[in-house]
Design a protein around this nucleic acid. Structure first.
Lengths: 247, 247
DNA sequence: GCGTCCACTTGATCTCGGTCAAGGTTTTCT
DNA sequence: AGAAAACCTTGACCGAGATCAAGTGGACGC
């Protein structure tokens, strides 16, 4: 999903995570050029990194922590439209103002590039534009997959979809594969999950309890999840057990 | 929204509509290069242009007619994830198989480019990749705006959102501006609207009737719509009357 | 002209998820 | 340690929208 796991780093061992998102092939010159214009920023959990509508004078990628993209209506209804995990890219070359709030869910460190030099670099380095195009297309696919979740799935399917995405993302990061049980900690509160899924936090809580009762997931405490059978979870999500391996 | 109206053609008078989507600045060489690898395809209303999962050996843009991108679950639930109007781009450089069904809603003519030559051209012509990046970012914004519609808006607000998008798109095409009444024909059946909005066709019908009763829209027949006051319609959509002028 | 089909409308009823409310548990602060 | 604040769970009730069903109206073929 928005989790940008499709980026292929197979021939990318030397590439520091902070550049993965924008380095196409670990080309030394590009890395050096990026290195020269980068700087770091830290944010505390709960802090808003960028307000919707604000001037945005940098782009960058998440080094550590989790941030969310959210849209808010005047009456306070909010919808999360993206989840940013380490290596995900934030920002929009060619546009000045932010379209959504970016909020740090945990403590976050970002590796930033001032927008103007980054755009110059992009213009002189075709790899980078092509890289960003691929990443953006991936995010577009993820957003559209999420439209199906929001528009047509039941509450239970929505929760199962979210858990399945986090579980698979987690399994791929920890290199454990999808055959055994997957264990992870939920990076989101019930309320944040609700905002992502277009539900209320009560419904999220009830459906998590139901999945637990039905042994689709195991819960220790409130956040520590074990998925004994990812196939079962994906069935619950209404996904074809094969289709989702793209993500 | 997915309607790719943000493309700036202000300095683009000579640019045939079939190339608008991919020509960055009407650069003559690019146009000629594109001209050499293009071909046309026609589709009848109702025909599926591309099946999800199929090999996709071309990219292209819509010349005339309307097509939709839809995702379908095994049990038949469907969600439209994009609406393709003339000049919109279809396809995914760098990926082989289609992620969704593309269906012709009306008769459609597409201007296609075989994928390989197009990718070669893109690699040798930085403008094109940058152009596509901008377009894709616009579509991503549109998809995310639609996530708010799907996740958080009521049925009435959803209908108003869709009508408001079509009305504004239409007003911008016909150059009439947003001050007077806007008149247009709905390009979608009630069922297609339902698929776009995550509703049933009965609910769509009821809410259209309600908006008509409340004089937010006028209806002649089933498809011919007059919007006397676009501001009023946007209020009904839950949009800030200013925010949406981006689209 | 008449039946058929398709897109649409409207009504009656049901249900999933929202809302309101109360209580529990964990973390944080003093 | 004790108080306060987050965060989470569970219950009772309600309502928006889904579902099921019947009917309308226009387009088209025969």
């Amino acid at each position: 999903m928005t989790l940008n796991t499709l980026v292929d780093h197979s021939n990318c061992e030397d590439c520091p995570i902070r550049h993965r998102a924008v380095c196409a092939r670990c080309d030394a010159d590009e890395l050096i050029a990026l290195e020269e214009i980068k700087y770091y920023r830290s944010f505390e959990a709960g802090q808003t990194i960028i307000w919707s509508g604000d001037q945005m004078n940098f782009v960058g990628s998440v080094v550590s922590g989790i941030a969310t993209l959210t849209q808010t209506m005047e009456d306070g209804r909010t919808q999360m439209v993206g989840l940013l995990l380490p290596s995900d890219f934030v920002g929009r070359p060619g546009r000045d103002s932010a379209a959504y709030d970016v909020v740090a869910t945990t403590d976050v460190v970002m590796c930033c590039f001032r927008k103007k030099p980054f755009e110059d670099l992009m213009n002189s380095t075709p790899h980078i534009a092509q890289r960003l195009l691929q990443m953006t297309l991936d995010e577009l696919d993820a957003a559209r997959e999420w439209m199906l979740v929001l528009g047509r799935k039941t509450a239970r399917e929505k929760i199962a979809s979210l858990l399945s995405i986090i579980a698979r993302r987690d399994a791929s990061v920890s290199q454990k594969g999808l055959s055994g049980p997957i264990v992870f900690d939920l990076p989101l509160t019930r309320e944040a999950m609700a905002d992502y899924l277009g539900l209320t936090l009560e419904t999220v809580s009830r459906q998590i309890s139901a999945l637990k009762k039905d042994k689709v997931i195991l819960l220790e405490g409130k956040r520590h999840v074990t998925v004994p059978d990812i196939g079962r979870l994906m069935e619950e999500a209404g996904d074809d057990a094969d289709g989702g391996f793209l993500v």
